[in-house]
Amino acid sequence: MDQHAPTTWITICDTCKREGWDAASGATDGERLAALIETEAEGRRVRTRRVSCLMGCQQGCNVAVQAAGKLNYTLGRFEVSEETARGIVDWAELHAESASGQVPYRTWPQAVKGHFVTRHPPLPEAE
């Protein structure tokens, strides 16, 4: 990967609660998924951060994959699992390798298929 390429970030909603979440369990589903994604991303070419609320509550669990100058994506409706975390990080690495942020469907990990909620064009570089 080009060391001058913009950093791809996985932004994880740590307040997401899936239907049926039990408050007695302690951590939210978003916190549990965030911990798995952070572990999976260690030593890889993407960075992670947590935010409290991506405002996609009916789509939870939610993450955003973003980099300056590239297409940015929101993904949701995830179960909390190691497979999910691996698929998100694997896809984010493909995003990092892409000049535009667009990743060919044939290369998508199975764990992210059917989980894309929105795609945002990059912000303009000048007014």
Results as ranks from 00 to 15, higher is better:
residue 77 R to H: 09
residue 52 S to H: 15
residue 55 M to D: 15
residue 23 A to S: 11
residue 54 L to W: 08
residue 38 E to T: 10
residue 54 L to K: 01
residue 12 I to W: 06
residue 54 L to E: 09
residue 17 K to W: 12
residue 34 A to N: 07
residue 30 G to I: 03
residue 106 R to V: 11
residue 92 A to M: 02
residue 42 E to L: 14
residue 126 A to W: 11
residue 110 Q to V: 13
residue 105 Y to H: 12
residue 33 L to S: 02
residue 44 R to P: 15
residue 9 W to K: 11
residue 39 T to N: 11
residue 4 H to G: 00
residue 41 A to T: 09
residue 29 D to T: 00
residue 108 W to I: 06
residue 58 Q to P: 05
residue 43 G to R: 10
residue 127 E to F: 12
residue 8 T to P: 01
residue 52 S to F: 15
residue 33 L to F: 05
residue 30 G to Y: 07
residue 127 E to G: 10
residue 61 C to R: 02
residue 6 P to K: 01
residue 11 T to Q: 07
residue 77 R to Q: 13
residue 45 R to H: 15
residue 101 G to W: 04
residue 13 C to H: 01
residue 98 S to M: 05
residue 117 V to E: 08
residue 21 W to H: 15
residue 12 I to K: 05
residue 124 P to V: 07
residue 7 T to F: 01
residue 117 V to Y: 14
residue 37 I to W: 00
residue 79 E to H: 07
residue 109 P to T: 11
residue 96 A to R: 01
residue 64 A to S: 11
residue 117 V to S: 03
residue 110 Q to H: 14
residue 116 F to L: 12
residue 17 K to V: 10
residue 110 Q to N: 11
residue 38 E to G: 03
residue 66 Q to D: 13
residue 83 E to F: 12
residue 68 A to K: 08
residue 56 G to T: 03
residue 9 W to V: 00
residue 50 R to F: 05
residue 72 N to T: 10
residue 86 R to L: 15
residue 4 H to W: 14
residue 115 H to V: 04
residue 30 G to K: 09
residue 14 D to N: 14
residue 19 E to I: 07
residue 115 H to P: 04
residue 46 V to C: 06
residue 116 F to H: 12
residue 28 T to Q: 01
residue 61 C to P: 02
residue 100 S to F: 10
residue 106 R to Y: 01
residue 22 D to W: 08
residue 74 T to N: 12
residue 62 N to Y: 06
residue 20 G to K: 02
residue 71 L to Q: 05
residue 10 I to D: 00
residue 72 N to E: 14
residue 105 Y to W: 09
residue 116 F to V: 12
residue 2 D to S: 07
residue 74 T to R: 08
residue 3 Q to A: 13
residue 102 Q to T: 03
residue 53 C to P: 05
residue 77 R to A: 08
residue 58 Q to L: 11
residue 60 G to I: 00
residue 118 T to L: 08
residue 73 Y to R: 06
residue 126 A to K: 15
residue 93 E to C: 03
residue 123 L to H: 08
residue 52 S to V: 11
residue 85 A to L: 03
residue 94 L to C: 02
residue 57 C to E: 05
residue 103 V to G: 06
residue 23 A to W: 01
residue 51 V to D: 12
residue 70 K to D: 01
residue 15 T to N: 06
residue 64 A to L: 11
residue 56 G to F: 11
residue 19 E to K: 14
